[in-house]
Nucleic acid binder design. Structure first.
Lengths: 133, 133
DNA sequence: GGAGAAGCATAGCTTTCCTATGTATTGTTG
DNA sequence: CAACAATACATAGGAAAGCTATGCTTCTCC
């Protein structure tokens, strides 16, 4: 609950990029050129949802679509320069918003959050029983 | 980012209640009978959004609307028994989903998260400069 | 008692998500 | 190697969740 509310709080401070677009572009930044279905898995949404999201960002010029040389059914999605610029700015905004709040905390609290981030990352890469690889 | 992804991960494991409904009902559980505009503030959404959300949950029978005796413009929203049951079940589901992942962590990591929750709560109640009371 | 403020509802729109289904390619197999 | 199943995506149609602008009551305060 605390994480959810904090996330909601932070996302309200970022005006430049819609939430879903930010997620998509963050993934692309991490993963490089990626297929739509893999992006959907990473973002935990359905394939049509990702298909649609990619189309919209393609229209914005933030994302590019190239044929996958290894499989002509698939396309590889990647960030454009404009997309990267947009992502950088959104991250800057988000960072500033978070920093404003963190600056009001004692250093020990910030350290606690930092440690928690590491733990959360390990949860995110965890495989839970009953999940297919 | 970690908090956002973790939140998204957890919310996918809860099928019973839509996201916004869960937030609304959680607030009602915390606050008791509350006005729509106060709910909107607590949930950081616009008043019309909350108005709409309350209407939908009212149709579901999970939420009740009573006139505010102190102000006949306002209504007081509260949980119905059905709503509380629904909330309990959704929390149970969410708890189980989280527990499944926490159980794979060493106790020290869980303790780190616990400490972080306390810090996050303090951020949530923080007042940032430039906000009206 | 009248003007402005406060509390909601409605209208009209956008974004984000879903399931179901169709199409084209790839793999597999008798 | 032809047929069938599986995979990768797109499209259609609809629901949920959010917004701004605006209008209607009811308070509040001078």
């Amino acid at each position: 609950m605390a994480a959810a509310r904090l996330t909601r709080l932070a996302s309200r401070d970022v005006s430049s990029l819609p939430h879903a677009a930010m997620r998509l572009m963050g993934r692309l930044d991490e993963l490089g050129p990626t297929r739509i279905s893999d992006l959907a898995k990473a973002d935990r949404c359905s394939q049509p949802t990702m298909s649609n999201l990619v189309q919209r960002q393609e229209e914005n010029g933030w994302v590019r679509r190239e044929p996958d040389p290894a499989d002509s059914r698939a396309s590889l999605i990647s960030l454009t320069d404009a997309g990267r610029a947009e992502l950088d700015q959104a991250r800057h905004e988000a960072g500033a918003a978070i920093a404003a709040r963190l600056s009001q905390l004692p250093a020990s609290d910030v350290a606690t959050l930092q440690a928690a981030v590491t733990v959360m990352r390990s949860i995110l890469t965890q495989r839970v029983e009953g999940e297919r690889p």
